[in-house]
Write a protein that binds this DNA or RNA. Structure first.
Length: 571
RNA sequence: GCCCACGUGGCGCAGGGGUAGCGCACCUCUUUGGUAAAGAGGAGGUCAUGGGUCCGAAUCCCAUCGUGGGCUCCA
């Protein structure tokens, strides 16, 4: 076992890369080069971006540096010495100047390459056995778009070549389950250049899956004490002034359209509409908590560079709900919502997610004690579920604290789906009240929440999660009947009719093709069951069942098959 | 929005200054075949869009649109 951890190895490889870049591009200025989750990067100030060709040259140069096998030598120096040493490296100078005065400044020497660095490092460059430069891209200095754009090179390193190969293989496999690729192959959805970026077109099969999810969503909400509401897509601009969106969300909203000389805006959120329903009459404490849910389609302007398949779009349908409750009910309502979130995710096979609790930011509204109570409510809900979570101090919305649940996509990127946000602000803005037991007017607290996030993003993650092989209850086509020869077509049609009569989405593939061909296509379409029928099956009133995942399961009667399907649906 | 790359028939790709090629899919015919691709024939694109250079552009240049990977953003 080597005497260093993987982070040190990667960080050291980043140094070696910077060394190589300096050898090949003496004018390049070094910025920072940390190890990251699956590798490392290093940022450089250069006159021209790196080309793929450059990456190969840098990689070759790195091999030479590694072969030289020079040790990493740590030295501690004074601030003055550091500033003098890095006089030609403006980014390093900026870093040094920003270090607290009592900080020990250390440098690492590796051959003739010296870098400002806290360490630790491996002993010598020769210990790097397996690395790969992956890609280059632009990156702002210190992550601020007002700063200069540097050129970043990403790479990764592992202790052994085998581990590196396995990693690269894993990336390759992950690309096969990319929802954009599967969306096309399985004919689920498309994005159309003619219509505009970030706008989703659901094809029949994708629309069907979505419908199954939505149906499930609706019935679960009705079972969980929610009422369903429906609201328009546009509203007067003034409404968005009242809600505060015009001030706080303006950059994400589309330009107004004129209707009879009054400006209207397309909705980026559903909450103001739900509040209007609340305000349509006087509310009593007896009605609380009010839970209103809507699959509400919203449109938001997203900068062009951030759009990504179904995961980041400009028009999407939130599985939104707003809970209006009293302060006393906040605790139990939060618990209830979190339980609902988890049970919903579980239904779709998600158990691996990251949970964040975001607390009060500097710029915020509301009294301290309300913030404290709301944050406690969220925290105790998390604890009650035994969830481990990260606290994002100051990461809450200006109007209240929140819980976010993020799910991973095929290559490990996390996407925010579920969210629970307490809001003290909007009820105030709309002057929401309820009449209490004391016959006085009180202000309700609102909880915004989405379980799946948006149908688009959730389905994108879901497609990757299942690699397109939806479980029986979600599969757009649950079974395909495959007659072996023309003379079995009629029987195949009868089998399909029986299955459909029992509610199973069944197709017949009676094309003029051989059985193997139809099997292959059905497998590629990831249809859960293939039902082969020939002379034997027709004779016996049976089907030869082939499962997508388990292969040939042998013959079974149609009646038994239906029972088996029903059983599988309840699992 | 910023950096880089890319944009050729439905999909995946090749070609790369002298008026487009392959595989799959599609259509027709033959074949009626038992668990991942039967055989033959055929149709389909002017090379994202606009402009420029050139005797001539899909091929070079510019702009625009779109896509991809990052950055930033994500109330």
């Amino acid at each position: 076992m080597a005497g260093y951890d993987i982070e040190s190895l990667r960080h050291s490889t980043a140094h070696v890369m910077a060394h190589a870049v300096k050898n090949l591009f003496p004018d390049a200025q070094v910025a920072i080069g940390p190890s990251i989750e699956d590798g490392f990067y290093y940022d450089f100030g250069v006159s021209a971006p790196f080309t793929p060709d450059d990456l190969e040259k840098i990689s070759a140069e790195m091999q030479r540096v590694i072969k030289a096998g020079k040790p990493f030598v740590r030295k501690e120096i004074s601030r003055e010495e550091a500033l003098a040493l890095f006089a030609d490296e403006p980014f390093k100078v900026e870093l040094i100047e920003d270090l607290p005065s009592d900080e020990i400044i250390s440098i690492y020497e590796e051959g003739d390459f010296i870098d400002l660095c806290r360490g630790p490092h491996i002993d010598n460059a020769g210990q790097i056995k397996a690395f790969r430069l992956l890609k280059s891209s632009g990156a702002y200095w210190r992550g601020d778009e007002r700063n200069a754009m540097l050129q970043r090179i990403y790479g990764t390193a592992f202790s052994t070549q085998q581990e590196l190969d396995d990693y690269l293989k894993m990336i390759e496999e992950a690309e096969k389950r990319d929802h954009r690729k599967l969306g096309r192959e399985l004919d689920l959805f498309s994005l159309q250049e003619e219509a505009g970026p970030g706008l989703v077109f659901w094809h029949p099969k994708g629309a069907f899956v979505r419908t199954v999810i939505e149906d499930h969503w609706r019935s679960e909400h009705l079972n969980n004490g929610y009422d369903l509401v429906m609201t328009p897509h546009i509203a007067r601009q003034d409404l968005w002034r009242t809600s505060g969106h015009l001030d706080f969300f303006n950059e994400n909203m589309y330009q107004p359209m004129m209707v009879d000389e009054t400006p209207y805006l397309i909705k980026p959120m559903n909450c103001p509409f739900h509040l209007l329903i609340y305000k349509s009459r006087v509310r009593s404490y007896r009605e609380l908590p009010i839970r209103w849910a809507e699959l509400g389609t919203v449109y938001r302007y997203e900068r062009s560079g951030v759009l990504h398949g179904l995961l980041r779009v400009r028009g999407f349908t939130q599985d939104d709900a707003h809970i209006m409750c009293s302060r006393e009910q906040l605790d139990s309502e939060t618990k209830r919502v979190l339980e609902f979130v988890l049970s919903m995710l579980r239904r779709f096979g998600f158990s691996d997610y990251e949970v964040f609790l975001s607390t009060r930011p500097e710029q915020s509204v509301g009294d301290d004690d309300v913030w404290e109570q709301a944050t406690d409510a969220l925290r105790s809900a998390l604890d009650a579920q035994g969830l481990s979570y990260q606290v994002d101090e100051g990461g809450g919305a200006f109007y209240g604290p929140k819980i976010d649940v993020k799910i991973k996509d095929a290559i490990g990127r996390v996407w925010q789906c579920s969210t629970i946000q307490v809001d003290f602000n909007e009820p105030e803005r709309f002057d929401l009240t309820y009449v209490g037991q004391d016959n006085a007017h009180h202000r309700p607290i609102m909880i915004h929440r989405a379980l799946l996030g948006s149908m688009e993003r959730f389905m994108g993650v879901l497609i990757e999660h299942y690699a397109g092989a939806f479980p029986l209850w979600l599969a757009p086509v649950q079974a395909v009947v495959i007659p072996i020869a023309d003379r079995h077509s009629e029987y195949a049609g009868k089998v399909a009719d029986d299955l459909r009569a029992s509610g199973f989405r069944t197709e017949v593939d009676d094309r003029n093709e051989k059985t193997g061909y139809k099997i292959r296509e059905a497998q590629l379409q990831k249809i859960p069951y293939m039902l082969v029928v020939g002379d034997r099956e027709q004779e016996a009133g049976a089907v030869a069942v082939r499962s997508r995942s388990e292969g040939d399961l042998g013959a079974i009667s149609v009646a038994d098959l239906i029972e088996q399907f029903k059983k599988e649906l309840t699992e």
